[in-house]
């Protein structure tokens, strides 16, 4: 029998936490679930709030289940959409997972299904942000010999870009720091780890001060800016198209745009 009482599942905001919630909703046959991330706990007016403690084993079982019912792209789509941090993304994903579990064909190709469509659209915008970050990260060489970059992505894409940067910059230490979410990735020539920095209060990500960064850093930024200017063909100028490719909100991190 389905349990139609309203439940609010409160969890830690991680993907494993979310999967643990899915596990519980199945175990208790809950049909009416909303989610809450611990950071913003509110007492709900109706129904009861249950605090879900992240359980890696349960999360893993759910994840394996999802993988067995969808293509590799389909399961990645679930994770990617989750990173959008959108309000009520959990409920949408739960719905997606429920449908996937009962579908005979792998549901991820059913593009005329509204849930599939919504999830894949959200995953697509997160994916686009991932690609933008892979393109728009600009490292600056610090006096400690670390290549350092700031980002402020619209979605929580650091987990998605880690592999790309690790395989590309295998022989240099680097940090990519998300100023919005206040955490970063640090690669120490062996592995990538999550880290938090205490940045000075007056820290300005658009400046390259020589107390942090090398002199040659400023030279290379200058050369890059020169290069960027030289590649323009005035008779073809089309700023509308330019801004479409490089939206203005990213400009402050692009050294070629800081002149």
């Amino acid at each position: 029998m389905l349990n139609s009482e309203e439940y609010t599942l409160s969890y830690d905001g991680t993907f494993d936490g979310f999967l643990t919630c899915v596990f519980h909703s199945y175990e208790q046959k809950m049909s009416n679930v909303t989610f809450q991330r611990n950071q913003h706990v509110q007492q709900s007016l109706f129904g009861s709030t249950i605090e879900i403690i992240t359980d890696l084993e349960k999360a893993d079982r759910v994840w394996k289940g999802i993988k067995s019912k969808t293509s590799a792209r389909g399961s990645l789509r679930v994770y990617t959409a989750f990173l959008s941090e959108q309000a009520q993304i959990e409920a949408l994903l739960l719905n997606y997972i429920q449908q996937a579990f009962i579908s005979v064909l792998p549901m991820d190709f059913d593009f005329a299904n509204e849930t599939v469509l919504k999830v894949s659209q959200i995953a697509k915008s997160v994916g686009r942000e991932k690609h933008r970050m892979e393109a728009f990260v600009r490292f600056k060489l610090t006096t400690d010999g670390i290549y350092f970059a700031n980002i402020e992505p619209d979605f929580d894409v650091l987990p998605l870009i880690s592999k790309h940067f690790k395989s590309r910059y295998a022989d240099q230490k680097w940090i990519i720091y998300d100023l919005k979410r206040n955490y970063g990735l640090y690669y120490d020539l062996k592995r990538v780890e999550m880290m938090q920095l205490a940045l000075p209060d007056d820290y300005d990500p658009t400046k390259t001060k020589t107390d942090f960064f090398t002199n040659s850093e400023i030279e290379f930024q200058t050369l890059w800016q020169d290069y960027f200017e030289s590649t323009n063909i005035a008779s073809r100028k089309n700023m509308k198209l330019h801004v479409q490719h490089v939206p203005k909100r990213y400009w402050k991190y692009l050294s070629e745009k800081l002149r």
Partner: peptide, 8 residues
């Protein structure tokens, strides 16, 4: 594409 020229 790491950047785009002003002509796109």
């Amino acid at each position: 594409c790491h950047s785009y020229t002003e002509d796109g």
